[in-house]
């Protein structure tokens, strides 16, 4: 989820709204699983997930940047397309097969570090995609805020005409940002099928892409912020699970609403105004 949210940050920083995160994750979860299933190699599956994310993101980029389709419409199209295609192929290929799946990615104990009391098991005993996520947070934060590429991307997201005037290729920057976003979302999708349960189920992402979108906004379009928001939302989810089991009389559905309600409050400007990149959502047409 954090991975998708990070993807969202990059894409929106360049001025392309990405509500297609959900579809990208679902497609990647699917292809990742299929490839892992066929090749008996989980790593190839993860790779396939990332590549799928890239491909779908390229479609989103082509539609919204080159063909000037409304970015929301384009994202929406990708979401239903992903739902449809995974549904059809799932029924065609996977549903009848009763063969055991390829399993899940192994848990890595980082030598020495995992032996640290308390902190060790929390931070250093995870499956690979979790480490990739931690790495990605740092990397994306660095890339977006401390590199020339990041500066250019942000410039394109704030004022594409100005960026164009100083010689930045707006289209190229946006394409790259959307594709990176797809790659990250793809990795996030592979998490669901290959790390979490080792299986693909129709619509298994179940709206997580939208929570990621929410997290990105709640984190004010910043990689670290998005991560904190994901932690908060995941915490709420875990808590609602606990409450359901413990039988405390708070309807668990109310906790489930939390991410969405918080996001609404944030976009409405309470709790410190969340400012989106100025040109977010606007197509750019070179004169």
């Amino acid at each position: 989820m954090t991975l998708a949210a990070l993807g969202g940050v990059i894409s929106e920083r360049s001025g392309v709204v990405n509500i297609a995160l959900e579809g990208m994750m679902l497609m990647s979860a699917f292809t990742g699983y299929v490839v892992a299933f066929q090749t008996h190699n989980l790593w190839l599956g993860v790779l396939a997930g990332v590549i799928t994310g890239l491909v779908i993101a390229t479609l989103h980029a082509a539609l919204s940047i080159s063909l000037l389709v409304d970015q929301i419409v384009s994202g929406f199209v990708i979401n239903i397309l992903a739902l449809g295609i995974t549904g059809v192929f799932f029924k065609g290929f996977l549903q009848e097969s009763s063969v055991a799946g390829p399993g899940v990615l192994p848990t890595w104990h980082i030598p020495l570090l995992s032996k640290i009391p308390v902190l060790g098991p929390i931070l250093f005993v995870h499956q690979p995609i979790t480490y990739a996520m931690l790495l990605a947070i740092v990397l994306v934060q660095f890339l977006v805020f401390y590199t020339v590429w990041g500066l250019r991307t942000r410039a394109v997201g704030e004022h594409p005409l100005a960026a164009d005037t100083v010689g930045i290729n707006v289209y190229r920057v946006r394409y790259l940002a959307v594709m990176l976003s797809g790659g990250l979302a793809g990795l996030g999708g592979a998490y669901f099928s290959l790390q979490q349960i080792g299986q693909f189920l129709p619509n298994m992402t179940g709206g997580r892409g939208f929570i990621a979108l929410a997290a990105m906004i709640f984190g004010k379009w910043k990689p670290l912020g998005a991560f904190y928001a994901c932690l908060l939302f995941a915490g709420a989810e875990a808590l609602s699970g606990r409450i359901q089991i413990s039988g405390v009389h708070i309807p668990f559905q109310f906790l489930g609403m939390l991410p969405y309600l918080l996001t609404i409050i944030v976009v409405a400007g309470a709790m410190g105004r969340a400012v989106a990149p100025a040109a977010d959502g606007k197509p750019y047409r070179k004169a």
């Binding site: 539609l63 080159s66 063909l67 000037l68 389709v69 409304d70 419409v73 384009s74 929406f76 199209v77 990708i78 239903i80 397309l81 739902l83 449809g84 295609i85 995974t86 549904g87 059809v88 799932f90 029924k91 065609g92 129709p202």
Partner: peptide, 24 residues
């Protein structure tokens, strides 16, 4: 036919793509 009803989502997505992208 055992073809998933989800196939209409594919129809739907393509239709919107065409409608929304006159350039395409």
């Amino acid at each position: 036919t055992q073809v998933s009803a989800d196939v209409i989502s594919v129809v739907e997505a393509t239709v919107i793509m065409f409608i929304a992208a006159p350039v395409l």
